[in-house]
Design a binder for these strands. Structure first.
Lengths: 346, 346
DNA sequence: TTTAGCACTCAATGATTTAGAGTGCTAAAC
DNA sequence: GTTTAGCACTCTAAATCATTGAGTGCTAAA
């Protein structure tokens, strides 16, 4: 389908994309020949542009206007024409400095998200570390006073989850230890994902005679499964899109912004993709309708995974108009991901 | 300054506010006399309206337009004319049902915020429980393995904060217990607010010979002081304002929405006020420029405090245009607060 | 004090015009 | 065969102008 374009057409498409990205105005043959002398006249370019339109890479808003890239045009640009550039040293420094001092994971990520949106001036989304993908390490019950205790669950990735429960007096310390030991043995090494309801039922059965006493301790487990179903999505620069001329219509703005209030959609946006095609663990670009979600049909999404050790635990993304500075965004996303990996390694 | 208005003027102002609130159009004498027959002609109303304008309660966008309430007009309406109504049974049910099942505090509040914005169709803000206002209860160090431990800090309001630290092997279990015991004794009953840097320094001095070993444990304390400086602000319906005709200008939208990305501003908005005047712990209304923050000069903010026990731990608020349905919003905020108090009581 | 009547104001709406950027096509030039 | 100059044509965006109608303020009579 996607034919090979001759050199001049490639160059032309590239110029048009660049020009349109920076001006947001449909670009005409005249503009190109004036601004980027290619040794041919505007008439020639006109012919070439008509060809590119026929091939589906360009479109006209109306007959007597210049042309702008279609989704297919952007796709070709990203796949074939993009030269991987890198970010400026200054930007590099900004990233490094902002992430350097932080300790807490959530904090790091929220800062990363802010930096990402600032540098790109688009909207950033970062899918936080997913508790459920980390492996169970141990469970402790820490007596607080006569009838209260703190259940603490720790995962191999350093997540800690806890809950204050009431401890029936009738339970001796020794018994408690036994139960805890048993649970630890059974669950060690499983990811939280794998602690299914059926496993919990099984555990309960095994501990039949002590169930009621520890009903509340189990609550922690169950809540971990349900409530934390979706990791938090960290947003930055949600209003940046308002600077884009294509979003001057209030209804579009509304549709776009209300997306950010639906964390489940955001989660799917980030998590739902990257399925197979994410070969090298590198950056993925989804343009316009390539994304099933209607709200982003006029947007492009650039994502990458970040990891602790060799395990992917979340995603970094930038969402902007399809008329996006892909070159730059790709570089920034790549850089942020690398820094995030480094910092999270501790 | 604020003179007494005669009965008819009061009634008229009330009608105008109501009418303007529901239509968003400046209301003219004719409209009023047609829609709400008061036994007098439009000419009479015209005179009365001219008076109200002179007194500063009404204004005209331009000479030949109807009139709309000024900030002063709204203030008079809220202070003198508002009849406290209550919410519908259905709304009552919605609130009750949404909040009933939840356990975790954060979750409760985030749901409350969503419900609040849904019912009012304005933007809701809830200032989450403030860790720093709860009192220190105890600190524990829980050994994880040979060289790691989990520091757990628990407050009287059931907040738990923790951090994984490295434990130097050279520290014996008994020594550790001693240190922990000492810290507990020193800090018991203080609010986190009161654990100042100077106190930490003092503690460090007392434990001089063991400082280095526990440097990291102190980190938890220090982070508690700094990072969690501000409690989280939970938002709901941030895009609801886009449905309001007075916010059809993209720049206004931008200014308004970018407020929501600055948590510190939101924090001040909610916390900074309610200072003294909040006599009965009841609902507070701030209209337009009564609020120092420029971004909300065309908005009204309705807030109330919620509490655990008899201690205020956070605030509930609704932010909308000054042309707000005060009657309804006050009722809803009141209701939400009551339910929140009840649910948080556990 | 109230009201009818009337002249006047002004934003909003819609029609009309104009200007300019850009296209497609043709015929000549390379 | 490609490229180019020239030209007629198209269509939007901006500017101008006229119209409409809701609403006011004022005056004089009830």
């Amino acid at each position: 389908m996607t034919q090979q374009l001759n050199g001049r057409k490639k160059k032309l498409l590239e110029l048009i994309v660049n020009e349109y990205v920076s001006t947001a105005e449909p670009v005409g043959s005249r503009t190109i020949s004036r601004r980027y002398p290619m040794g041919v006249s505007s008439a020639t370019l006109r012919n070439e542009m008509a060809d590119l339109e026929e091939l589906g890479y360009l479109e006209q808003p109306h007959t007597s206007a210049g042309r702008r890239p279609t989704q297919k045009g952007y796709r070709y640009y990203v796949d074939k024409l993009l030269k991987t550039s890198s970010i400026t040293e200054e930007e590099e420094k900004v990233i490094q400095n902002s992430l350097a001092k932080m300790n807490e994971v959530e904090h790091i990520i929220s800062v990363a998200s802010r930096v990402l949106s600032q540098i790109t001036s688009y909207t950033s989304l970062i899918l936080g570390p997913q508790f459920k993908k980390s492996a169970f390490n141990q469970l402790r019950i820490l007596p607080l006073d006569d009838n209260k205790g703190l259940v603490v669950m720790i995962t191999n990735m350093g997540f800690v989850k806890n809950k204050v429960i009431e401890l029936p007096r009738s339970l001796s310390g020794a018994e408690l230890q036994q139960v805890v030991q048993y649970l630890n043995k059974k669950m060690y090494g499983l990811t939280i994902d794998q602690v299914t309801e059926s496993l919990i039922k099984e555990l309960k059965r095994d501990l039949f005679n002590r169930i009621e006493l520890l009903e509340q301790a189990f609550l922690l487990l169950e809540e971990s499964l349900n409530e934390e179903e979706r990791a938090r999505v960290f947003l930055g620069g949600t209003t940046n899109i308002l600077n884009q001329p294509e979003f001057k219509d209030v209804n579009k703005i509304k549709q776009f912004l209300s997306l950010f209030e639906q964390e489940d959609l955001l989660f799917n946006l980030l998590e739902g993709e990257g399925d197979v095609c994410e070969s090298s663990g590198d950056v993925v670009v989804k343009i316009g309708r390539e994304n099933p979600l209607e709200e982003v049909h006029e947007c492009a999404l650039v994502t990458a995974s970040y990891m602790i050790g060799n395990r992917t635990i979340g995603k970094v993304g930038v969402l902007g108009p399809t008329r996006m500075d892909y070159d730059r965004v790709l570089a920034v996303v790549r850089a942020i991901t690398i820094h995030l990996n480094r910092v999270l390694e501790r």
